[in-house]
């Protein structure tokens, strides 16, 4: 083993080291569905954690020593005063299984924020369409919360949200509440309804909702669409948006890729010459079209 260095050297290497995560505490855990939970994180007094300064669409990496790391989108909008962040996590692999064992009060190491996030300033005064499928609602929820909080700064808002079954719909209560909202048109759909379940909204895939909505009050030239969902969803949603004549650079999407570092080094999220972690994960359709195998 190499010689131990001075405290200052170690401090410099710890503070500047982009591979080291910072501690944060679990404030609250919300059960969303049988396999999805939202973790509300709070800052530990006196500790510096840059992961709390983020915008919607960015992501952070949870670091569990001995198990590994995994990237998750923030599922709330940034609020540096509250010093709170939320992640809505689907239990699907080894890291997420370990995360699901955490209790309120546990300390977790998180590093971030990473990625570009949504261009929040360019959304102002625009009509907005949100299209989300499954857990893809998580990264868009932060944008939506922000937009609802300052709704006078935005035009008409449409939310199209799909899930497999009513039981699988994340943030269901929140979206059911939105369905009755005055200024927001919120349409919900599920692929199918199990026999023991009830559902008063649509049945079908999320693109079916385009036929049920009216867009006469939406001006395509000043509309921004935001998409997040399973990989298969994107091209079908984009076909619908193009029918509405929304310009290609006003169709925004946030993409999932394998990531090991979050800082553009490990190469796993490379898409053609771009890196989802540093150039994205939010891309517009015009850029996506010119980037091979992005969607």
């Amino acid at each position: 083993m190499n010689p131990e260095k001075t405290d200052q050297y170690m401090k410099d290497h710890f503070v500047d080291n982009p591979y080291l995560a910072h501690e944060t505490r679990i404030k609250k855990i919300i059960d969303e569905t049988a396999h999805v939970k939202t973790f509300v994180m709070e800052n530990i007094d006196g500790q510096y954690n840059p992961a709390f300064d983020f915008i919607p669409g960015q992501f952070a990496i949870w670091s569990l020593p001995g198990i590994g790391e995994a990237p998750f989108s923030y599922s709330c909008h940034g609020d540096s005063e509250n010093k709170e962040m939320q992640f809505t996590i689907h239990k699907i692999g080894s890291v997420t299984s370990a995360i699901f064992k955490y209790q309120v009060g546990d300390i977790v190491e998180i590093r971030g924020p990473y990625g570009n996030g949504f261009p929040m300033d360019s959304l102002i005064d625009k009509d907005l369409i949100f299209i989300m499928g499954g857990i893809g609602a998580a990264p868009l929820r932060g944008v939506l919360h922000h937009v609802l909080e300052f709704s006078e700064s935005y035009g008409n808002i449409c939310v199209l949200h799909g899930a497999k079954t009513p039981q699988d719909m994340v943030f269901k209560e929140e979206f059911l509440g939105l369905a009755g909202h005055e200024t927001v048109r919120c349409l919900l759909t599920v692929d199918n309804i199990p026999e023991d379940d009830s559902w008063e909204h649509s049945v079908g895939v999320v693109t079916d909702l385009f036929n049920q909505n009216r867009y006469d009050d939406i001006d395509p030239s000043k509309t921004i669409a935001m998409i997040c969902g399973p990989p298969i969803m994107y091209k079908f949603v984009i076909m619908e948006l193009e029918k509405l004549n929304i310009p290609q650079d006003q169709i925004l999407m946030t993409l999932e890729r394998r990531m090991k570092c979050g800082i553009g080094k490990c190469g796993h999220c490379a898409i053609d010459g771009e890196y989802a972690c540093t150039d994205g994960p939010v891309f517009n359709y015009w850029d996506a079209k010119s980037t091979k195998e992005m969607i």
């Binding site: 569990l64 020593p65 001995g66 198990i67 590994g68 790391e69 090991k260 570092c261 080094k265 490990c266 190469g267 796993h268 490379a270």
Partner: peptide, 15 residues
């Protein structure tokens, strides 16, 4: 320069 990152645990000492 692509790399993978893995956590490895000691066989001898827990933790």
């Amino acid at each position: 320069s692509c790399y993978n990152v893995v956590d490895k645990l000691s066989v001898g000492t827990i933790g």
